[in-house]
Design a binder for these strands. Structure first.
Lengths: 145, 145
DNA sequence: TTTAATTCAGATATTTTTATCCGAATTAAA
DNA sequence: TTTAATTCGGATAAAAATATCTGAATTAAA
């Protein structure tokens, strides 16, 4: 389904959203620990997303990452598309590049519905929703096993 | 979503099912050409599936692969699980190993529905359905672009 | 101004996935 | 019995994904 890179990205972005209040910068070490992921690798991923405009970053002491209200309008689907492309949301269930409405593969119609539900799931969830959570509602993103 | 290995496997198995009539062995070269895939790689994949009991193979001249009526009861979901495991059908939408009914991730409930629809799609499609197709209904599995 | 902590950038390393090579074993037909 | 065509098995190669290293640039606080 999602690449590991993409899973880290989603978890990191959710964590940052949850902790982006009043311009507070979220630091990479805290992010990586909180989502059980390799720090330098997540750093790279966030660098990329930051260049693409999905979040702010600031260097130097007390620097870190931040998701503004505007950036928080992005959905999880936006982030997935930015990293893994849209194969998940538009690809064929048998991996045929030529599959389409006009030239459907054997499972096209059924698969399409599942794919669309997946897209709905990820696109209905925006970073905003995490930003406005109260502290006691903040969700666990860490591996606990 | 699916690994490339798994995509090749599904397409190859469908092709073999379509051409498995009256004990007729389907030859690897024909399979690979028909599904636009690397012949030796698909050979390896089918060797594995054959060991796991998803199809027959016979060596030597005029040898090849064959799916019996019994084996054709398998669904596409069975083949996916055999190759990629069940992450697609059971995994978390954010990649959290600890996500579950009891300890749900932020998108658990919605995602679960999409995942289940995906499973339905693949598990409702059995190889049998391709085996019984008339020749003029045989479907295109080749890349055309 | 100095210092300590941080992200950035580019290179490198490791692991996994995808793909190929090659010779042995097998088989049916000639 | 010989031959040609095929799959099998194990090794190897290539490509892609994942992860780390290192030093430079930046920044806020002391």
């Amino acid at each position: 389904m999602l690449s590991k890179t993409c899973e880290y990205a989603l978890r990191a972005m959710i964590y940052i959203a949850q902790h982006s209040k009043g311009g507070n910068m979220v630091n990479l070490k805290a992010i990586a620990e909180s989502i059980s992921s390799p720090q330098l690798f997540v750093g790279k991923i966030l660098q990329g997303l930051s260049k693409q405009g999905y979040l702010q970053s600031s260097k130097g002491r007390y620097g870190g990452f931040y998701i503004s209200d505007k950036e928080a309008k992005h959905s999880l689907a936006d982030i997935i598309s930015a990293i893994d492309g849209d194969k998940m949301f538009k690809g064929c269930g048998l991996g045929l590049p030529s599959c389409s409405e006009h030239n459907p593969c054997p499972i096209h119609n059924q698969y399409k519905k599942a794919r669309e539900l997946l897209y709905q799931t990820y696109s209905q969830t925006t970073l905003e929703q995490f930003k406005t959570l109260e502290p006691d509602q903040v969700l666990l993103l860490k591996r606990t096993i």
